[in-house]
Amino acid sequence: MTAGPRAGIRLVVADDHEVVRAGYAGLLATQSDFTVVGTARDGAEAVRGCREQSPDVVLMDVRMPVMDGIEATARLRGGVTAPRVLVLTTFDLDEHVYDALAAGASGFLLKDVTAERLFEAVRVVAAGEALLAPAVTRRLIAEFARLRPRAPAPGTLSGLTPRETDVLRLLAEGLSNPEIAERLGVGEETVKTHVSRILSKLGLRDRTQAVVRAYESGLVVPRLP
């Protein structure tokens, strides 16, 4: 694991292919507000490095030796200062992407992403915003919830108010904040407040995790094709 000084958005790149790993690290280092504080060859090294360097964002390959990106993401999520994880994948409708999102990743990027899109994604996730368009998140999670159904976890949403439950349901159905506000007849700032409270009450880090929780709790049922 290599390390660098503290500045701007701190990043770790985890990929078992040296050329890919070095390529992403070099590309990210061209941005004045990014600092690549480490690279990792596998998930176990990524977890150790993140605990040492406390990055803001990790670019995480899914398929790696020793420990894959899914397990590494789950282990990082339990940390006190857990970084946000961007999963690197070859196919957008890959079951491993769903597993990574369920494990705590904030979003995913295809490996052929353009440089500008990569930079934008890192900044968006570092700021705590949703990387994926709500409709894309819903489509992905709904598809794998349908293919691999799980028994609803009772009581997981019991701490939410009826209005917060309504907001979570609409969020999971793919509506944006303005669309939720229009549907419920409230202001957009009110919706943002509800979303923040939902995340806080459920112990979630972002909207992507809220969508996962809505499906796994049974609040939203995947549509059959």
Score class of each variant (00 low, 15 high):
155 G>P: 02
192 K>Q: 10
17 H>S: 09
161 T>D: 10
114 T>P: 09
187 G>Y: 03
158 S>L: 07
67 M>V: 13
138 R>W: 04
162 P>D: 05
142 A>T: 06
165 T>R: 10
207 R>Q: 12
38 G>S: 02
70 I>E: 05
101 L>E: 05
93 L>H: 15
213 R>S: 12
187 G>E: 10
35 T>I: 06
117 R>D: 12
184 L>F: 04
124 V>W: 01
175 L>D: 03
148 R>M: 08
94 D>W: 02
115 A>H: 08
175 L>K: 11
52 E>W: 01
65 P>N: 10
225 P>M: 00
7 A>N: 07
164 E>R: 12
173 E>C: 09
36 V>S: 07
121 A>R: 07
10 R>Q: 12
146 R>V: 00
45 E>R: 00
47 V>Y: 01
82 A>I: 01
96 H>D: 15
102 A>Y: 03
110 L>V: 10
6 R>K: 14
79 G>I: 11
175 L>A: 11
65 P>T: 12
187 G>P: 05
185 G>K: 01
149 P>R: 07
34 F>A: 14
211 V>C: 13
50 C>D: 07
154 P>L: 12
66 V>P: 14
165 T>Q: 12
113 V>E: 04
53 Q>E: 15
99 D>C: 12
5 P>T: 14
112 D>A: 06
214 A>V: 11
192 K>G: 13
15 D>N: 10
141 I>D: 02
204 L>N: 05
153 A>P: 07
149 P>Q: 09
137 T>L: 11
31 Q>E: 15
27 L>G: 13
221 V>R: 11
206 D>G: 09
214 A>K: 05
84 R>S: 10
62 V>I: 10
115 A>V: 13
87 V>S: 05
115 A>D: 15
124 V>Y: 03
175 L>T: 00
67 M>F: 10
194 H>V: 02
135 A>L: 09
21 R>I: 11
183 R>C: 12
191 V>D: 01
145 A>I: 06
93 L>M: 09
198 I>K: 04
201 K>A: 12
154 P>G: 03
170 L>D: 07
11 L>F: 03
207 R>P: 01
17 H>W: 00
158 S>H: 08
147 L>A: 11
6 R>V: 11
94 D>A: 09
153 A>W: 14
174 G>P: 05
99 D>I: 03
186 V>Q: 06
103 A>N: 00
86 L>Q: 03
9 I>M: 12
120 E>L: 11
106 S>E: 11
18 E>N: 07
207 R>K: 15
18 E>G: 04
158 S>C: 07
162 P>R: 02
110 L>Q: 11
23 G>W: 00
69 G>Q: 06
147 L>W: 01
64 M>Q: 07
85 V>W: 02
107 G>C: 09
68 D>V: 00
12 V>Y: 05
223 R>W: 08
225 P>G: 02
97 V>C: 07
178 P>F: 02
216 E>Q: 15
219 L>V: 08
95 E>H: 06
108 F>P: 00
168 L>C: 06
83 P>M: 00
194 H>S: 11
66 V>H: 13
160 L>K: 05
161 T>C: 10
146 R>W: 08
34 F>R: 05
93 L>K: 15
117 R>T: 13
105 A>Q: 00
220 V>C: 03
